[in-house]
């Protein structure tokens, strides 16, 4: 009985008696969810355009953040560093297409997936070698993002909104709108969707598969840069960032592998869900449940709605 009370009633009583804490938790979950969504977005872009499940997306986020900070430390102005990082990602996209994807055309999806794991290791080794593995702070102010926080007093307490988190949410929304327009209105976007539908048909109407792959990897790189800046602002820039990349998998399961808005909404569900669960139900289990809670939600989805909320119904069930 006591256990039932602790599970079913006590957390809600706590939510009701400290509403400011509850709102703070919601906000934190919302911001974390946006960032999970951004990482998942990188996965979705590449999966949509080439059917490759790109395991290296989290490490691209780390690479973006790390190279940006390192360029800045070399004395290059912040905005020029951003441009340099973009150039780096374009070169990387081109190399990946030329050296890996082009060699593996027509291979099974599993093989392509494993090759991106190999790529992950190459990037980890190279990035640690060149930029060093020491955690460093993200150059938020130098990039012109506001710092400090907004305080909103309520119910004898107060809720803090970090300015950088607000910027992250705003920029995430802008980026999703731009991507949605890019995918549906521009010529390249139509090309991307055509490639995703059918490689051969796309080739036969004159769409260059290789070019499309370079573009989509580059766009995923831009998404990684944005994610890297904001995630780096919340915690230090280090290789520990890639562990959050594993959270993108449950996000994809919930949102669906092929849906841009699904990635963001899945991210929000995971972010909010795990924050609330950790704060109100976590102590019952000895805290630290954030590590696996997302996967449990994903498992439930897999068993009852395997294509996710917005995914195409392509999944093959056993």
């Amino acid at each position: 009985m006591e256990i039932l009370y602790a599970i079913l009633i006590a957390p809600f009583v706590e939510m009701g008696s400290y509403p400011d804490l509850f709102i703070q938790a919601l906000w934190d979950g919302f911001v974390a969810g946006t960032l999970y969504g951004l990482i998942a977005l990188g996965f979705v872009l590449i999966f949509k355009a080439s059917g490759v499940f790109n395991f290296s997306q989290p490490i691209l986020v780390v690479l973006a953040a790390l190279s940006l900070v390192s360029f800045y430390k070399m004395g290059i102005p912040a905005w020029i560093s951003v441009i340099l990082v973009l150039i780096l990602f374009y070169v990387l996209a081109w190399l990946v297409e030329r050296l890996i994807l082009r060699q593996l055309v027509n291979q099974d999806g599993n093989i392509l997936f494993m090759s991106t794991i190999g790529l992950t290791f190459i990037i980890i080794g190279a990035a640690q070698w060149i930029f060093g593995g020491v955690p460093s702070a993200m150059i938020v102010n130098e990039l012109g993002f506001p710092n400090g926080s907004l305080e909103w007093p309520m119910f004898d307490g107060g809720v803090y909104f970090e300015m950088i988190d607000i910027s992250a949410a705003v920029i995430a929304v802008i980026m999703i709108v731009i991507l949605a327009v890019f995918f549906s209105k521009t010529k390249i976007g139509r090309g991307l969707r055509a490639v995703a539908d059918d490689h051969q048909a796309a080739l036969s109407v004159g769409i260059s598969l290789n070019q499309i792959w370079v573009i989509v990897w580059f766009v995923a790189g831009i998404v990684a840069l944005v994610t890297g800046i904001f995630w780096g602002a919340r915690s230090d820039v280090s290789f520990a960032l890639q562990i959050i990349g594993f959270k993108a998998l449950p996000v994809l399961i919930i949102g669906g592998f092929t849906s841009i808005q699904g990635a963001i909404i899945g991210g929000l569900i995971i972010g909010l869900g795990e924050k609330i669960f950790e704060i109100y139900w976590g102590p019952l289990l000895g805290s630290g449940v954030e590590g696996w809670f997302a996967y449990v939600i994903a498992l439930v989805f897999l068993l009852y709605r395997p294509q996710g909320l917005f995914g195409d119904k392509l999944i093959e069930r056993v």
């Binding site: 890996i100 190459i122 190279a126």
Partner: peptide, 22 residues
Amino acid sequence: VMENFSIIFLGVAIVVILIVEP
């Protein structure tokens, strides 16, 4: 340096094996 080199080596080995002989 050697640690990173061996990580890179592992990554390259996987990609090469997958391309040459899956």
